[in-house]
Structures are given as C-alpha cells and as structure tokens.
C-alpha cells in the first residue's frame, strides 16, 4: 500500500518516505527535482515509478539510499525499518546500503568492473559486511546467488565481457542480493535488453520477490512493463507524485490527464482504437528550474481550466486506494 494512513500492525512497514524534497545546486541556482513526495511500503510490496526524463524518479530513488551529489539539499524523512537514512552516520549508511537497501542500476556494462572476475565482484560486499564468517562460506554464497539468478556457478571466474547483456544484468541482481537486503531498488533494469531477455529478468525479479519477500521499488519510463511487475504504481511529473494506486486500475482507468496520455502511448495490440493511430502528448516535460505557476502539467494539459493556473494540486482521493493530483478529480 502506498497510503500515508497507518496500516494495521499485521504488515510491517519497511520503507517510509515522508514529504521528501530534493534540491540540486547548480551554477545557475537551485533546481527542485523532488517536491514533496510521500509513500509507505510494506514488506513484499512492489512500487513502480514512471514518468518522463527529468520528472524526479531517479532522484527520488537515489535519495532513498542517499546516493546524491554533495551540496544537494534534502528535506523530509526516509525511514528504512524505522531508521532515518537522511540522518545516519556514514559508517551506518554504508552497512545499510547493502544489507537493508540495495540498488540495481541500468547499463550493466558500466556498473561492473571490466578487469575483475564477476565472482570477486559479488563476494566483495559479503566479506566487507561480514554477512558470511569465512571466505569459503562467502564463495559458497556467491555460487548460490549466481545459480539463483540463472547463471551456472562455474562462470564466477569469468570477466564481464565474457557474458551477454542479459547475463551481466543478472550478475548485478545477484550482487544487489549479496547481503540479503530488505529493499531492492531497480532503476530501469531492463531498458537496454532485448524483449525475451527483458522478460527473463522481470520474471526473475518477480520470483525473487515472491521467494524472499523482497520489497521492490522499480523505475522505468515504460508504463506497460511496470503494470506487469508491480502491484502499485506511482506516476511522477515535475518532481511530484501526481497519481498513485493499484497498477492495473491506474493503467486501465487513469484519473490524471498526464497518466491518461502516458497509458495511451503504449497501445494494446488488438485494440482497434490505437491501430494506425499512435497517441502522443504535445509539448515537452517542464524544466525543473522554471516550473509554471499552479499545476505544472497545465501547459500540456488537454483539459485544463483557468483555476489550474492558481492551484498546485495536492493528491486528492480518486477511488479505493487511489489518489490523483488534479483539481478536476477533486471536483467530481
């Protein structure tokens, strides 16, 4: 559930983001990249974040593990199992980054060291965080992890260039799982992969979530991929969460006009209304340093009314477990 309201104690909240603001400092001034985002995730939940380049989704997940450049202003709270990541001491943060929250980046080729065997790269965090007592036990764990992600353990001695793109992405997943984290953050983990390999990786992530009760935050710009993997969706625009709810209903029946445009961009094969009619959205994503007054989507919005220029809408209730930041939703 990504509701702010407290949940019954039967399910444990493992990640809680509260009114998070992230502002970058650049030569030309301050750039607000995330402007007040809140959500809660219980163990085993998967949240998909979608939105265009510059909407703040990568900044948001990087803020969760405090992977932001120095001199970035961060306000609000990020609680992992009740502990605030934003105020942690560096030593504690280093431990939390592998054992509580781990991240799988996109571009598997660049995230791996080209001159180190893959086994040695996976064993490093295990030894560093003393997850396994002996080196032999740690090596056994590497073998298990590789098998879990579908790579024969014997290939631990190979270098990244000897693996295919899909296998390298699996190695990154194995590495992220090395210290048995509670939360797995995946930033566009399948973007550079072929269709069938993408399906293999998504299926793997889904299986790992089911087996280990992993809590996942999944980013992509492909809404249809998210619906497939995540039970909850959060749509971001101009640094805000503008719609959230169960993924199938958000995709099938979007409430915010931006989500509607995004959903229409991914046609359902067989749906005659999209045959030979690609749907797009005129205009460009807003420049975070020059956000328009009122609703930041207004300049591109097909249903905007004069009041939209004055109110920057918060998330309004939009049905069971759903919210949308649009004054037309509030007025219904």
């Amino acid at each position: 559930m990504i509701e702010l309201t407290p949940q019954p104690a039967t399910r444990e909240t493992v990640l809680s983001v509260r009114d998070l603001h992230v502002t970058y400092t650049v030569a030309s001034g301050q750039v607000p990249a995330v402007r007040g985002v809140s959500f809660d995730l219980q163990r085993g939940d998967s949240l998909g974040l979608a939105g265009e380049s510059g909407c703040g989704k990568s900044t948001l997940v990087n803020a969760i593990l405090r992977l932001l450049p120095p001199r970035t202003e961060v306000k609000g709270q990020v609680l992992i199992e009740g502990e605030d990541v934003l105020t942690m001491k560096p030593g504690r943060l280093r431990a939390v980054r592998w054992t509580k929250g781990a991240i799988v980046f996109q571009g598997a080729l660049h995230a791996l060291n080209p001159v180190q065997r893959i086994g040695a790269q996976i064993v490093e965090p295990i030894l560093l965080h003393k997850t396994e007592a002996t080196e032999a036990a740690a090596n056994k764990r590497v073998a298990d992890l590789l098998e879990q992600v579908g790579i024969p353990a014997g290939r631990a001695r190979e270098y990244p260039h000897q693996l295919s793109g899909g296998q390298r992405q699996r190695v990154l997943i194995a590495m992220a799982l090395a210290c048995d984290p509670t939360i797995l953050v995946a930033d566009e983990p399948t973007t550079a992969l072929d269709l069938m390999v993408q399906a293999q990786v998504l299926w793997l992530l889904e299986r790992l979530r089911a087996e280990r009760g992993l809590t996942m935050v999944f980013i992509t710009h492909d809404l249809s991929v998210l619906t497939y993997v995540c039970d909850r969706l959060g749509i971001m625009y101009g640094g805000r969460m503008i719609e959230q709810g169960p993924s199938d209903v958000v995709f099938e029946d979007p409430q915010h006009p931006y989500t509607r445009a995004l959903a229409a961009a991914f046609p359902t094969i067989g749906d005659q209304s999209s045959r030979m009619k690609p749907a797009g959205l005129a205009g460009d994503p807003p420049d975070p340093s020059q956000l328009p007054p009122g609703c930041s989507f207004r300049p591109r919005c097909p249903v905007a009314i004069p009041a939209c220029a004055e109110i920057d809408p918060p998330l309004y209730d939009a049905g069971p477990h759903r919210k949308a930041a649009c004054i037309l939703v509030a007025r219904r």
């Binding site: 265009e52 492909d222 995004l262 009619k277 994503p285």
Partner: peptide, 30 residues
C-alpha cells in the same frame, strides 16, 4: 520519452501517407 513517442510515430506515418515514402523500421517494439 513515452509522451513524445506517439508524436514521432504519427509524423513517420503521416510522411508515408502524404508522400508515398516507404519506411523500413527496425524495432523490437511490437
């Protein structure tokens, strides 16, 4: 980006329909 995708595809289709151009598009996107 997703919202721009449709605009570019519509442009390609429109060029084909109005000029008789042929487009061979390589993709894994069904």
């Amino acid at each position: 980006d997703a919202s721009i995708r449709g605009e570019i595809l519509a442009l390609l289709r429109n060029l084909v329909d109005t000029t008789g151009l042929a487009v061979l598009v390589v993709t894994h996107d069904l």
